[in-house]
Amino acid sequence: HNLTITQGKLFFHYNPKLCLSEIHKMEEVSGTKGRQERNDIALKTNGDQASCENELLKFSYIRTSFDKILLRWEPYWPPDFRDLLGFMLFYKEAPYQNVTEFDGQDACGSNSWTVVDIDPPLRSNDPKSQNHPGWLMRGLKPWTQYAIFVKTLVTFSDERRTYGAKSDIIYVQTDATNPSVPLDPISVSNSSSQIILKWKPPSDPNGNITHYLVFWERQAEDSELFELDYCLKGLKLPSRTWSPPFESEDSQKHNQSEYEDSAGECCSCPKTDSQILKELEESSFRKTFEDYLHNVVFVPRKTSSGTGAEDPRPSRKRRSLGDVGNVTVAVPTVAAFPNTSSTSVPTSPEEHRPFEKVVNKESLVISGLRHFTGYRIELQACNQDTPEERCSVAAYVSARTMPEAKADDIVGPVTHEIFENNVVHLMWQEPKEPNGLIVLYEVSYRRYGDEELHLCVSRKHFALERGCRLRGLSPGNYSVRIRATSLAGNGSWTEPTYFYVTDYLDVPSNIA
């Protein structure tokens, strides 16, 4: 807008934040220059609390790290170098490059900038070799853009010569660093050979998330399962459950009422301010606690030095998902009996873990797994792929695949051998790939016309006998059925096997 004052003059007093240069501009645009008398524009009460600059400061050096910015700028000295009290560095987070010096300023003089007072450097006698002032900004957020400017702080001049310097606002972004852990990993099994893994992005990506790394490792069953005799009275049979499938998407929606109208769909109840505040506090606490764990609990591995020492970490090797089922080394339970199943799973520490690289999504279907087997899954978020990966501390989750139908069934015939004193040795093959492992066998036998009897055969007993022995049988026709019990439950009964026990007292003698 054009402003013209045809008559009258300007009068400025007691404006401590208004620089004289701005008042002189007002004289020019209003056409009143030359009308004012000496005392109409006070030299001592206008701009006496402001830094009124008329020179431009330029930054000469900028260096960044993930949490620091090192700045240096060209030296500046007023005509009387004693008038320079120091520099004021202003900075704040700036997602967009549209910041002005006066953003967030209120009537009390406060604003949204963080201000650092910096002492002037030592003055050199040689004007050509003056030290460049600077400042190291610490405690910054990774991968965050900051708006920065600097200006001088000078003393009051009796001659009211307006001098000083100020830089333009520059924008500097800190470097990326390792992201925080992925949030809320959930693993479920939808079949006997697959596990579905879902997660949420890290709360602090500290860069642009480029991919996720998912490692999985087959877990050995508890050692007590191999040692305890679950045929003993009072000892509860062990059981394991597989990871249940995901709930429906509708039930997972946030901010939804727990109660549904019987007449149909209901609208979600909005969260109160107290609920939102509580969630923010919980989120802040979780982030602080995660940072504490990362800094205190997890110790970084030592990389190899120039002395030739090897990095103890196993090298990563990509495998196809079809090879995942046989990740671990199978060892027989008892070496003397080769027909026992290889369900003991000690994992070799030198073995390469299978892994998958996930790009542009937060889910993965891990296939080719062994049925009813526990897996430990390790999830890392990465925001750099080359020249070397920059990934987060791992988040861990466990899951067990679903049982395989008929995996616990005894394959092959049940054979028998009759000894003296009416002892019958029953023999059968253990299931080759049971659900988890076989903890015991149930032997059901009966003599024709009598009630059915049951015998429990422990895992250890089966390994020693290759089956079991029935003792003290009365003469007669017998039928026997056997079924295995694994961590997933009972298998199917075998087809009945028949044998006849004679009275050993009636056996004919070869003595003449």
Rank of each mutant, 00 (worst) to 15 (best):
L225S: 09
C456Y: 02
V214Q: 00
Q252D: 15
A463Q: 09
L505F: 12
D222C: 13
T241D: 06
W216M: 15
N360M: 10
Y441G: 00
C468G: 02
T307L: 12
S398K: 09
M402S: 15
A394D: 08
Y375A: 01
K236P: 12
S320T: 10
D408F: 00
A484S: 04
S268D: 08
S239K: 15
G207S: 11
Q275R: 08
V297T: 09
N295G: 14
G308R: 09
V345L: 13
E452S: 03
V324G: 11
K357Y: 07
R390T: 07
S492I: 12
R447T: 07
R319G: 15
S239L: 13
I438E: 01
A381Y: 03
Q429C: 15
L369M: 09
Y498V: 07
R390P: 08
L213V: 09
P508S: 04
G491L: 01
D291A: 10
Y504T: 13
I209R: 14
S474Y: 13
F372L: 05
P314I: 01
H425M: 07
I209T: 14
S458P: 05
A399M: 13
L470M: 09
L321T: 13
L213Q: 13
N295M: 15
F337P: 14
V329L: 08
I482D: 00
P338D: 05
N490V: 06
G308D: 08
F337G: 14
Y212R: 00
L379P: 01
I410L: 10
I438M: 03
L321V: 10
A407F: 10
G467T: 03
L321N: 13
S492V: 09
P238G: 13
R400M: 07
Y504P: 07
P205T: 03
P238E: 05
I366Y: 01
A381T: 12
S363A: 13
V439W: 06
D273T: 04
T415A: 12
P312A: 15
L235Q: 07
E310P: 08
N360A: 11
E465W: 09
A407V: 07
A335N: 12
E290N: 05
S283Q: 09
P434V: 10
E442F: 12
T288L: 12
N510P: 11
E404Q: 14
E265S: 07
R301C: 11
E451H: 15
P431E: 00
V414I: 13
E356L: 09
N383T: 08
S268P: 14
V501S: 02
S479H: 03
E452A: 12
V501H: 03
T386M: 03
P431L: 02
T241Q: 13
P496A: 15
P312M: 09
T343F: 08
E404Y: 07
C267H: 15
D261G: 07
I482G: 00
S367Y: 07
S342R: 14
V397K: 13
L232G: 12
D503G: 06
I482Q: 03
H454V: 06
L453T: 08
P314L: 06
T288M: 09
R466P: 05
Y230S: 06
S398I: 10
E258N: 06
E433I: 15
Y230L: 11
G308W: 05
N477F: 05
W216A: 05
T272P: 12
H461T: 09
G436E: 02
Q252Y: 08
T307G: 13
G449P: 10
L232C: 13
V327Q: 13
S363D: 06
P434C: 03
D503W: 13
Q429K: 10
Y375F: 09
P205V: 02
G489E: 01
Q256W: 09
K287D: 09
P205A: 08
V423Q: 07
I377C: 07
Q219K: 08
P332G: 09
P349K: 13
S474P: 07
T502D: 04
D450T: 09
S257M: 05
Y445P: 01
V424A: 07
S223M: 14
V331L: 12
Y448W: 10
V299A: 10
A394Y: 13
E217P: 09
H416I: 07
F298P: 04
S248W: 06
L453I: 01
L228M: 09
E362G: 03
K432C: 09
D229F: 12
G412H: 05
A220Q: 14
A395S: 12
S243N: 12
R353Y: 12
R447A: 09
E465Q: 15
A399K: 13
E290I: 15
P338I: 11
L235D: 05
I276Y: 11
V214L: 08
S203V: 06
L470K: 00
Q252I: 09
L455F: 11
R483A: 04
P431A: 07
H371K: 03
N208H: 05
S262E: 01
R469V: 09
Y292C: 01
F289L: 09
S341G: 08
M427T: 14
